[in-house]
Each structure stands twice: as C-alpha cells, then as structure tokens.
C-alpha cells in the first residue's frame, strides 16, 4: 500500500494541502444530501398515507390487518442489522477482515429476514383479497411500506457488492468511501422504519 492510500482513509488528514475538505468528507456530505432528499420523498408517501388512512371503502382497516408480533420481529431484525452495519464500518476502517466480513454477513442475514417477513405479510394480505386494489387506504399502505422494502432490497444488493469489492480490491480509499455511503444508507433505512412502525402499524392498531 502506498503512503497516499494509507493516509487517504479514515484517520488521514481531513484537509488537502490547499485547505479544502478531503474527498471522504465531500463524498459523505453529497450522499447525506441525497439521503435527505430520499427522506423528503418518504415524507410525501407518509402524508399520502395519513390523508388516506380512513378511506377504507368499507374494507378492513389497520386494526383488522396488522400483526403486531410480526412487526416486532421485523423491527428487531432491522435494528440489530443497523448495529452490525456499524460494526462492519468499524471493521472496514480498522482493516479488520474478520469483523468486516462477519458483521456484513450478519447484516445481510438480518436484512434478508426482514425482507422475507415483509414479503410474507404482503402475500398474505393479497391472498385474502386485501391487496393494494382493495381501498385507498391499502393502496397508500402498500406504496409506503413497499417503497421502504424496495430500498432494503437495493441495500442488500449494495451490501453484497461492498463485500465483493473489499474482497477483490482491498481496503482502498475509494472502497472505504463507498462503505461510508452504504453505512449512511442502511442507518437511514432504519430511521425511516422507526417512523413506519410507529405511524403505520402501532397507530393503526391503537386507533
């Protein structure tokens, strides 16, 4: 590893010789702006859901449909995966292969378990005739929760890509920048899930 690569990662100088911020800070900041725009998009879906939550067209409402223990397991999976993702980013920065690959694998298993439970829930609803075409409430529900599920799917594909890139290219500065962005993405998905299980599921059941 060259000296430039050794100092360009975390722990290297935060500013370049001309005083501007390092590439890691600029890349992370840019990705943070993207994530905030993603959160704004989710807020539009949340607003749609909140407006349409009573429009059940004589069909079932959240109290009839939602399975709280199932949501609890989903929440535990995603929260633990956020924690293991943090461990993986520590492992990447410390160039600790065991910690990085182990934590990334656990993150993938937990994320896949979350996704499997969600697909099981969706297919169960659709099989009972309570699919997205049943009412405006269910259209909004499937759009909002499904959009989060699609993000998790994309995150899982990205996770596998990061493991393959670290395996093939090592802990290079550009790979570590991608790992920083992946960590931000995965933690942000968990933040959106907090809003989801509180507003959609728990309020739907308490209503």
């Amino acid at each position: 590893m060259s000296a430039a690569q050794a100092t360009a990662g975390h722990g290297g100088p935060r500013r370049t010789h001309d005083g501007s911020a390092s590439k890691r800070i600029i890349v992370g900041y840019g990705f943070w702006i993207f994530l905030l725009s993603d959160i704004v998009m989710f807020s539009a879906f949340f607003a749609t859901y909140a407006v349409l939550v009573g429009a059940t067209a004589g069909g079932p409402d959240g109290h009839d449909l939602f399975d709280v223990p199932n949501v609890g397991v989903e929440t535990a999976c995603l929260l633990l995966s956020s924690f293991t993702c943090g461990l993986a980013s520590i492992g990447a920065r410390a160039r600790n292969g065991l910690l990085f690959y182990g934590a990334m694998a656990v993150t993938f298993v937990l994320g896949a378990a979350f996704l499997g439970l969600e697909i099981h829930e969706f297919s169960g609803l659709a099989a009972r005739g309570d699919g997205p075409t049943r009412s405006a409430f269910l259209s909004a529900f499937f759009t909002l929760v499904g959009c989060h599920g699609l993000h998790v799917t994309a995150g899982l594909l990205w996770l596998l890509t990061m493991m393959a890139q670290v395996y093939a290219k090592g802990y290079r500065a550009d790979i570590l920048r991608r790992m920083l962005c992946f960590g931000l993405f995965w933690h942000t998905l968990d933040i959106i899930w907090v809003a989801l299980f509180s507003v959609v599921y728990l309020m739907g059941v308490a209503r």
Partner: peptide, 25 residues
C-alpha cells in the same frame, strides 16, 4: 475541520466506536 456524515467526530479507539453503537442499540 469538517467531519463526514456517519464518521466518528474525533479519532477514537476501536473499542470506543463499538461502545457508541452499543449505547445507541
């Protein structure tokens, strides 16, 4: 100097980083 979002604000020992995530969890 600035800190990238998601990075630890100051240089920390590895164990301290894990501690932060544990408190959060």
């Amino acid at each position: 100097p600035d800190t990238a979002p998601g990075d630890e604000p100051v240089e920390k020992h590895e164990a301290e980083g894990v501690g932060t995530y544990l408190i959060g969890l």
